Amino acid sequence: MTVLHQIDPIALDLGTWNLPLVGSVHPQIHWYGVMYLFAFIAAWWLGQRRIRAGRLPGVNTQDYGDLVFYCALGVVLGGRLGYILFYDLPTYLSQPLQVFKIWQGGMSFHGGLLGVVFAAWWWSRKHRLHLFDTVDFIAPLVPPGLGFGRLGNYINGELWGKPTGGNWGVVFPTDPVLQNMPMQQLQQQFASGALDQFARHPSQLYQAGLEGVVMFAVLWWYSSRPRPRYAVSGMFALLYGLFRFIVEFVRVPDAQIGYIAFGWLTMGQVLSLPLIALGLFWLWLSRRSPTLQPVLS
């Protein structure tokens, strides 16, 4: 079945405001930002459950609230800087104000991951915990946020996949061939079947399912009993790297980069290879590492 993407990326339009000193402003709440809010709420709620179960000894709910705050900053700052450095540095050098337009997309998972690791290191040092005890604790809380983020990509009509070549897929009005066509005209042509040739893989939904639902189910189950240090982090890195590498085969690469080599290798795949290697290394390292036991307060 072919679907025409018709979701408005703006969740709430607050109209035009005339403010003293500022002038006319038109505030809007975008679904992409709402997805980030859902991600942080999910991480906070799931983490509170693990804290009450004693999965990070010596840490109370207030301490964990600080960790969520630090990690939220790490996600946003690291994700944005990662996207700029890895994917589109020339554009942001020529248009610096674009850095602040996060609601338009442009966030890198790999940059966000580095931001979270740095935040976890900073917080762990303050609480005298081993970094990987903290990272192992965080890892199962991340997949729901990844899933929400990919739903935000889908709502924005960005990061779509290649043409399906069949009578199924999603027709995105943001497709370069269609983006100048009014929605009413798109709807008419879609109803006649004239747009079936533009149906694409909804790769954002594939990633939401794999990185969000499947990874969460596996990691939540895997971490439901104490595991050696590095094991949960290793499983997270391995699964994400594999899932991302696979989905990239049906996802259109970023236009400003294209394919890096062989006519199929993307930047997303290049950045995922180190994660796969790290995941395997951490799982190997976990075989001789201590296991943090739950301590109920």
Results as ranks from 00 to 15, higher is better:
140 P>Y: 09
218 V>N: 06
7 I>A: 11
258 G>W: 05
144 P>E: 12
98 Q>G: 03
119 A>W: 07
233 S>W: 10
161 G>I: 07
54 G>A: 13
85 L>Q: 11
39 A>I: 09
62 Q>C: 06
120 A>D: 07
8 D>Y: 05
186 L>H: 03
103 W>N: 11
122 W>V: 14
27 P>N: 03
127 H>D: 02
261 A>T: 08
52 R>Q: 15
108 S>I: 09
19 L>V: 12
12 L>R: 07
191 A>R: 12
285 L>E: 12
280 L>A: 15
64 Y>V: 09
273 L>D: 07
291 T>A: 00
206 Y>D: 03
64 Y>A: 12
223 S>V: 01
35 M>R: 07
21 L>I: 14
64 Y>Q: 09
24 S>L: 14
7 I>S: 03
28 Q>Y: 06
202 P>I: 00
49 R>L: 13
240 Y>W: 11
219 L>G: 10
179 Q>A: 13
14 L>N: 00
292 L>Q: 07
23 G>R: 07
42 A>S: 14
237 A>P: 03
6 Q>N: 12
42 A>H: 00
275 L>I: 09
59 V>S: 06
84 I>N: 09
224 S>W: 08
228 P>W: 00
292 L>N: 00
245 F>N: 05
208 A>W: 11
241 G>E: 11
87 Y>W: 10
259 Y>V: 14
78 G>D: 00
54 G>L: 12
89 L>D: 03
171 V>A: 01
143 P>M: 03
262 F>L: 15
68 V>R: 02
253 P>E: 13
118 F>K: 05
44 W>F: 14
158 E>Y: 02
74 G>Y: 02
67 L>S: 09
150 R>Q: 12
264 W>S: 11
95 Q>W: 06
137 F>C: 01
220 W>S: 13
203 S>W: 02
89 L>N: 05
11 A>Y: 03
194 A>I: 05
149 G>M: 07
198 F>W: 15
179 Q>Y: 12
40 F>Q: 05
13 D>S: 15
172 F>G: 00
23 G>S: 01
15 G>Q: 05
163 P>S: 00
182 P>K: 11
166 G>M: 09
69 F>M: 13
281 F>W: 15
96 P>E: 14
151 L>Q: 04
265 L>K: 05
74 G>N: 03
105 G>K: 01
211 E>S: 11
227 R>C: 01
177 V>G: 10
127 H>Q: 14
259 Y>Q: 04
125 R>W: 09
195 L>H: 01
181 M>C: 13
113 L>V: 12
127 H>F: 13
8 D>G: 11
76 V>I: 15
263 G>M: 03
263 G>H: 04
273 L>G: 06
276 I>R: 08
43 A>K: 04
281 F>H: 08
201 H>T: 01
30 H>W: 15
149 G>T: 10
129 L>E: 06
75 V>G: 00
216 F>G: 05
178 L>F: 06
247 V>L: 08
280 L>I: 15
269 Q>F: 06
286 S>W: 03
172 F>N: 00
163 P>I: 01
104 Q>L: 14
155 I>A: 02
76 V>D: 08
144 P>R: 00
166 G>T: 02
256 Q>H: 14
57 P>W: 04
136 D>Q: 02
134 T>D: 01
56 L>M: 02
64 Y>L: 11
155 I>M: 12
265 L>E: 08
36 Y>A: 13
41 I>G: 02
104 Q>C: 06
262 F>K: 04
